[in-house]
Amino acid sequence: MDQATEELTQSRDREPERKREIGHDEFDPIGTLVLIGLYFLILVALWFFMYFVEFLGNDPTVVGLVLTVVGLQ
């Protein structure tokens, strides 16, 4: 791409094509709710998964130590 085309592309993309003007009262960020809700569900799922990684994926740590100390193991 030569420089003239480059600059043209730049100035064109810099002025995003605005098809309509949406004001404060018309704007309903429902898509944001969907994305943030999805993120929340992912967090909950990972948090749940964490239990398996920490307590079932490894030998018990703190619990094992206590059992050893009090002579149950």
Binding site: P16, E17, R18, K19, R20, E21, I22, F27, P29, G31, T32
Partner: peptide
């Protein structure tokens, strides 16, 4: 970002 996207159609 969504506001921008909706204004862009």
């Amino acid at each position: 970002m969504e506001h921008g996207a909706r204004q862009r159609g």
